[in-house]
Design a protein around this nucleic acid. Sequence first.
DNA 1: TGCTTCACG
DNA 2: GACGTACGTGAAGCAC
Length: 930
Amino acid sequence: MAKITKTARRLYLVDGSGYLFRAYFAMARSRQGLTRKSDGLPVGAVLGFSNMLNKLLTDMQDEHDPTHLAVIFDHSSKTFRNDIYTEYKGNRPDAPEDLIPQFPLVREATRAFNVPCIETEGYEADDIIATYARKAEADGDEVVIISSDKDLMQLVSDNISMFDPMKNKRIGREEVIEKFGLPPENVVDIQALAGDSSDNVPGVPGIGIKTAAQLIEEYGDLETLLERASEIKQNKRRENLIEFADQARISKKLVELCADVPLDDGLDSLALRSIDLDLLMPFLEKMEFNQLIERIKRDFGDDRSLVAEGSTMTGAAGEQEYETIFDEAALQKWIDAAYVRGVIAVDTETNSLNAMRASLVGISMATQPGQACYIPLGHGGDGLALDDEDAAKQIPLEKAISLLKPMLEDPAVLKIGQNMKYDALILSRYGVNIAPFDDTMLISYALDCGRGGHGMDELAKRHLDYDTIKFSDIAGTGKKAKTFDQIHIKEAAKYAAEDADITLRLYQVLKPRLAAEGKTTVYETLERPLAPIIVGMEREGVKVDRSVLSALSSDFAQRMAASEAEAYELAGEAFKLGSPKQIAEILFGKLDMPGGRKTAKGAWSTNAEVLEELAAAGHDLPRVILEWRSLSKLKSTYTDALPEDIHPDTGRIHTSYSLAATTTGRLSSNDPNLQNIPIRTEDGRKIRTAFVHEKGNVLVAADYSQIELRLLAHIADLKSMKQAFADGIDIHAMTASEMFGVPVKDMDPMVRRRAKAINFGIIYGISAFGLANQLGISRGEAKDYIDAYFKKFPGIRHYMDETIAFAKSHGYVETIFGRRTYVGGINEKNPAMRGYSERQAINAPIQGAAADVIRRAMIRMPQALQDAGLGAKMLLQVHDELIFECAKGEAKKVCDLVSKIMIGAPQPAVTLSVPLVVDARPGSNWGEAH
DNA sequence: TGCTTCACG
DNA sequence: GACGTACGTGAAGCAC
């Protein structure tokens, strides 16, 4: 018998009624309600239910492996809640006619799968679930509730999570906070205030989930809030809270689940039982679920009991064999194993997150799940006192590198890593060019973009249901956090080896999905090959002239001091110019200026838009504050901060690009962010002159002109816009001309500006409100513009409608290159959230396609430059722009070649129906080249 | 740590 | 008509 050790239970509680309803409506939408062939009995929901149950019982290598399982149903009678409030669920329409016969059938299905089927008179399924869940939790068990019902979210805790079987999505604490704004323990109070129209829970009028969350956050709990309701500032809200206080208390009783339902069956009686084919098959045959019958026969064979086999993750936790390596012979054994297997997971440990500054501290490797090693190389180095006798036994770093290098560079051995860009850069600084490699983070990004993060801890939890050792667990946090070289080798080894182990396991789960889900091309052409290219760029860095920055800092400091003095004078007192709170007090309190808008949290907004309005109305202080702010921003974020990032050895700044940070496929830049270096103001632009080149070189900047609008014209098939691009006409002027019927020649710049704003708005998923805000016009006027636009470019409407419809039915959108982004919330009831998702859905294929195009260009660039005999180096990417450094003499050739590669980047995967245009020019600094 | 603000495409 | 918005980022300073 395998190791069914004395482990805690993993109790799965299926919300049977909830699932049935959702399966019914999902089926009804997709195939008009499946019926039994022989007599037309409606069985669609029963099939969905049976499939779900089968998946739970047999998908062992998937994320589920219950040890205990039960399906809970509502009992079809009044519950105790009707005694509290007669109207409870009083507005529920009767069940659809073709669902009614399926109620008894799902109970039959449950029993056929040999699963306990539980219901109790007088209680809802939710109460029974609550009772079992709390009981199991108290026993130290893990509980998974199969449901997406928000009424159950109050139960979520460290040991209790939910799983939405339709969306295949886990619902934990994070997701509850996402939905309610506060953690599970506050959910009851929020629901009591907000009420629920579908259950006919009254709540307090005028309060929705968002407001409720704010109130509970502020006052702690419902009772405190109701007692102190008189303090509420908003009149209507205060009155309602006072008037409807008792209604809120009743609502609370309605939404609060009862966790002491009398139970007939104890937890142990819910232990998972084997599927009994003699029990199951007759039922499935009766239902005529032929596909499911085939699948179960195939999966099950005749005498195989899946339940008796134990589970993968139990094996994982119990079967770790981690070796710490102190001698060359042992290391050689692992290297040999890598050659034998042809695949090995690799992870480096260092003393810093900054790959250009980090020193190698150790390397871990895994050859099979559960079998991993750690090679400590730099613990206790640099004379740091590390009370660890193991440190003396470490293999010398150079020796280990020389043994590992041939394997790490051997094309016959595939290396697997998580965020391998980091490890590859570290290793390259030690003379090892690791290749070829696969990256679980990038695979996850290709598969699940938009579904959550792609960090290892998160992936381990999501795909392996495994809690990794957190770095902070062994290193601590805050100021006294240790670096990896200061951690004792015994402890470090467990952490490091686990990382390699988990990476390998993740690879085994994720890699097959690429082919299965049609994302191999995306991964192989847009993700995987980019990583080594970025390594090259990061290592190259960009030269920055410290003296330019320090001169600017001095200039800004002087002018800030002047602004500061003037501001104090105007305010009649000194105050913190950096504090929005104090600014609001002075402007809207002391000086009594009209304070227009508030921030999300209800404070007076003092952002540039507000201050500019006040300045335009003739007030001096807001204008001075704006000047100070702008200088302060430039100084603290750029001229003061950037010199810190100049590498002591290279004299250059080496940013780090995140390859899997955005939901659209764009890169992001951090530490420092070189994608937001100022350009829009004159002062800001001066900062760009600090980005320079080595002697004898120049910088070359090449950017795509209007790439997103061109891609939109292609994707949405906008005939007149495509024609304009083909003819090389100023696209914003052309838009204005089409919309307002004015000639392009001698156009009023204001008119063109409006058209430009609309063009941008379209890309963002336009709304009248947003456009009105952008242009400072009324909402009605903005709406007229949008309508005019839709009329002139009918393809737009179509594209938007189609894209939203696609997102609604699939849950994701894709670029023309196949990059997929999952868009959550597109079927959300809340119109604001839905609107947000819809705009995401519209924008992602456009922004994403542009990101795909420049990725393709970047991937080809180094080889193309080399093939052309050019020594130019690609340094930076800023979404639609690439920056290079090359010898002065080859600048012209570089401009031409770079433009050619960028323009041809979509080919051969996609042939655009609009031309791409690239502007490339040399300069002695970034400001000049741009 | 969360909020606000602001730099970029 | 709800509900709060233009899409996508990262970083700094303040206030808790």
